[in-house]
Amino acid sequence: MVGTLAIIVSSALVYSAPLIFTALGGTFSERSGIVNVGLEGIMTIGAFSATVFNLFTVNIFGALTPWIAMLFGGVIGILFSLIHAVATVNLRADHIVSGTVINLMAPGLTVFLTKMIFDGHGQTDLIKARFGKTSFPILKDIPVLGEIFFKDTSAPAYVAVLVAILAYYVIFKTKFGLRLRSVGEHPQAADTLGINVYGMKYAGVMISGFLGGMGGAVAVQSISGQFSISTIAGQGFISMAAMIFGKWNPLTVMAAAIFFGLSQSLAVIGSQIDFLKNLPSVYLQAAPYVLTVLVLVLFIGKSQGPKANGQTYIKSK
């Protein structure tokens, strides 16, 4: 029983980690008033660049490679997210249209580059250094809990949890957070108080690029092990749903992401679990998506995000 639970928890954490990072990214963006449906594309870019980085530097960084590659994926994510920032903040593009462009662009661009780098193949080579399974010293020896939570588990997931706590602190306790939120709620009021509205929106989108890129990097380095067009298939959108379900609060967003990670992982490991074994796989595969819809309908309804979310702020001069 403890063994089954340990499998469920650790695989749920593996699948949750990318969602937590990305959903937190979306939270920063939307807190600044920029809707970001491009998270999927940002994850794709992050996953691709981390894979390439991992493959080419594993000889230099060794076991640390996945972590550095994760940061690298985040940095490339920032660069990519700038397209969204420029389009929505300066050029007054519709946020959803611009996000859709990100989602259309990312797969084409990454597969194009994959073919350039890997002799015309549609997917990259397999990476050698993955996140793998981590056991936390001391903690792993706690009876029962140690085996479930701290043995052979996903280290990025725990980093993601820390990032969520940090994000909560930043958004609700710091000067930066107050200003970020003010811009998403009432940009004109913020403007009259001398807050750099465009700057804050850029910050929000770029943080979403960083965290989304890291989310993609974590996904590829702990789940598929190589990049192809199907590495990121919907995680970005699910992260968006987690952000809404978590009502734009980093801690509840994290909880929602873990919930979706769990339901995603069940579709994968269902066959290893006794009471799920005989269920047709379609139920477990469709479950996260159907659950999302039900959760939105039953618990959120008209979701109340930041007041000026999705609106272009035009500074008059």
Binding site: A87, T100, V101, M105, P107
Partner: peptide
């Protein structure tokens, strides 16, 4: 695909 995405951009 890159061309199409840029057109929409």
């Amino acid at each position: 695909e890159i061309v199409i995405a840029s057109i929409i951009f």
